[in-house]
């Protein structure tokens, strides 16, 4: 999921069991709280750009999630086939960066210079280094 700096986002527990929501950012402030109640919703935000911020649940060691925090609104998460769309981008020159957590870890993703003029298409290949 992507959010903007200082944008509030909701964390909801849809299960009838307890989870703890533990964010482990390296730049932003770490937090950890419990959601013992079903349908409990908490609002949080991050005040610095950081990709990715890892979330985990320590009650269930297999639960984790990633959130990207940006200082601009032009981001998207791809679908299963890798398609994505970023709308509302004014015309001009941009650097598009594609990031996969498993391949790029802490480092930057792969990037490409593009010029946006109306609908513009940008293709990327992310290779899992073997």
């Amino acid at each position: 999921m992507g959010v903007m700096v200082n944008q509030k986002f909701k964390i909801k527990n849809s299960d009838a069991t307890l989870h703890n929501v533990h964010a482990t950012p390296k730049i932003n402030t770490e937090f950890n709280f419990a959601q013992p109640v079903k349908e409990q919703v908490n609002e949080k935000s991050f005040d610095k750009p950081e990709v990715p911020v890892r979330f985990m649940c320590n009650v269930h060691a297999w639960m984790f999630a990633y959130v990207g925090v940006f200082d601009h609104p032009y981001f998207a998460v791809t679908d299963k086939e890798g398609n994505f769309k970023i709308s509302g981008v004014p015309n001009g020159k941009y650097t598009v960066e594609a990031y996969h957590v498993k391949t790029h870890r802490d480092g930057p993703g792969v990037s490409k210079e593009i010029t946006v003029n109306g609908d513009t298409k940008a293709d990327f290949t992310i290779e899992l280094k073997k």
Partner: peptide
């Protein structure tokens, strides 16, 4: 070992 150190976020209370 179970990476459970943070499973109870509050202390010395437990989930309040």
């Amino acid at each position: 070992s179970h990476d459970a150190g943070m499973a109870v976020p509050d202390w010395p209370t437990s989930y309040g």
